[in-house]
Nucleic acid binder design. Structure first.
Lengths: 199, 199, 199, 199
DNA sequence: AATGAATGAGAGTTCATTCAT
DNA sequence: TATGAATGAACTCTCATTCAT
């Protein structure tokens, strides 16, 4: 009874979040209107407010949804026993696949979260810096194990990996013909070896 | 009317473009309003329309202004006689400096140009792909000269450089304490050599 | 369906009327929403419509409930055998006590009945003028018996008593520390003797 | 130049305040809509916001407008050299005339000010209690001069006068045929002498 | 060259009301 | 008897745009 009522509500709410993600990803937060979101979901505009208190709350939920799995995935990678190389490949793969799979929400997190009021941003900020710190940890371990050069600045390295993945993520979202695995391979090769000819 | 040819008119128009750039960079195109732009410039809202036919035209002009020098700079770099290494360093330096010199317009070009109608986007698209193609050319020459590995995909490489520079550009704009030269050095080292320890 | 005759149904309906009275008294008719009323009553918004056909009907019922006892009370007072003085004191006491006993409905009748459509207002209007006419009758009897001055305009007098009681009723509702009996005494003294020093 | 621009703005703003007063007085704050106010004024809805930041600000201004003159008038009365009787008559006359003359705004102040948020209410509250205190002062002086009975509670008396005037004010606004001077005479007679026959 | 005033379209949001369950 | 879900109309407010001056 109530459980099925609640279940339907939760399903619809998830659907609303995904619709909001799709619309925000395409038009940006301020360029989107609640009518578009509702239509994308197949309900009427006013009904959206049964699931969100405000457009802003919708953005908040989309951002959270966009970054959550992605952060959890990183935790698993960072806590594993693999080599530095394996972990970096796993990171890039996870990050880029995330864009291809379902995640307009991740794009929204990257591009639109700054339009949230500061209180709402806090929760997200924590998740974001967790992610970066884990990645920094991977680089530090890589340094200790001798896998990477002593001269590498781990903070810079983590930011660079994230930045490059997001840049490619954008291209991946925009161009569905891009071959995901090729991109992953090119990216990891660049990160490991750079472009210079060593022979 | 000869008004639109006047010296003062042109100065004011430039000022309007810079104001629009500043406001768009901070709040995004749809999040900005013409009143903010006018206030930033020190005139009243209605007076803006003396310089722009519409808000959209303002965005168009900002984007153009944002990418123009930047492309011209690239032409000079690409046409020069330097080594691949020197050209890549020059590219990264030019790109990142552009952000530090408060060229908010470049950020606007990157983040907001997609809100222009397709006809308006055409001119900009051409400039953008000119830039990318020149950079690809640099990589191709690098390949021929043996400076970089045969396995490098030049199209990928150019996108990667642009993506990384834009990602760091954002961080540079947001955090004025970041040391520009350190970032440049780290970026070029990554691009040349990757992170892996080769010793 | 025999539902609307049920004992429980009638109890719940009374409860709904009291909840509506409380909410309307606090926020006014247009400032209240059906959700607030339902919550005050402990049911869900949609369920209210089991007891009222519309928000307007709720207001109608509240007004009726608010004025009914009050008018009946007046009938008893007017039909009694007491002196003019006793009747006036009884009237003021009944009127003001009604406010203190949290008869928010009376306040609603006074302040919000004008938002009812004219057909609905008719029934209430009759009750209201019954009340006033009885009070006028008391004054007329007072005049005949020589208790009050010949110069008194009985219509004016009745309105004045009602007006003053409502004005003090508002203060009584707003300030729970006001001493009810002191107010009653002051009011009746004013009505009997005015402020002027006769010594 | 600028002065005439400003003058027009101020005239229009006054007109907007009067229109808001008329509409609020008829339908209550929550029952009114900005479209009605704008139409009453002869402009379009959106244009109202050139004169008010919000509907709430409009209410604030109306209340202020409604009570201001009225308070100033009271200051003059209280500071005068007249007898108690003359001052009380002047007070009632001023208060009731205010309703007949122009002052839907006074009704709005009385009935709707409670819908203002507390910060906005502060300024008004001060004016309102100034009024009451002046009136209390008149009663106190009346006591000292022997014009009124020692038993009179001056705080009560002031409230009673205000309450009765507001109650009659409502009737006056609603029924344009009521003879203002008759009402004033009846009211002052009640206040001075009460209804009781002293012969 | 600039402005004050106005506009109208469209946005987000609220809410009385309905209805299947 | 009561509820969850949905709706559509109405409302407040914002803003790009226009135009007489």
């Amino acid at each position: 009874m109530t459980s099925s009522g609640t279940r339907k509500y939760e399903q619809q709410r998830q659907s609303a979040i995904r619709s909001a993600a799709a619309v925000f990803a395409e038009k940006g937060f301020h360029g989107s209107c609640t009518k578009d979101i509702a239509e994308h979901m197949g309900i009427k505009q006013g009904s959206l407010y049964y699931y969100f208190k405000s457009k802003e709350e919708a953005l908040d939920e989309v951002c959270l949804y966009g970054i959550q799995d992605y952060v959890q995935h990183m935790e698993k990678i960072a806590d594993g026993d693999q080599t530095f190389e394996a972990k970096l490949i796993a990171t890039v793969t996870s990050h880029l696949s995330s864009y291809r799979e379902k995640n307009e929400a991740l794009k929204v997190y990257n591009d639109e979260r700054l339009y949230l009021p500061s209180e709402r941003r806090r929760r997200l900020k924590k998740l974001g810096s967790d992610y970066r710190q884990r990645l920094e940890g991977i680089f530090e371990n890589g340094k200790e194990s001798g896998a990477i050069k002593q001269s590498v600045d781990c903070h810079f390295a983590a930011q660079a990996v994230i930045g490059m993945c997001n840049a490619w993520g954008d291209l991946i979202v925009r161009d569905p013909d891009l071959d995901l695995f090729e991109v992953i391979q090119n990216c990891t090769d660049l990160l490991f070896n750079g472009f210079t000819n060593k022979s």
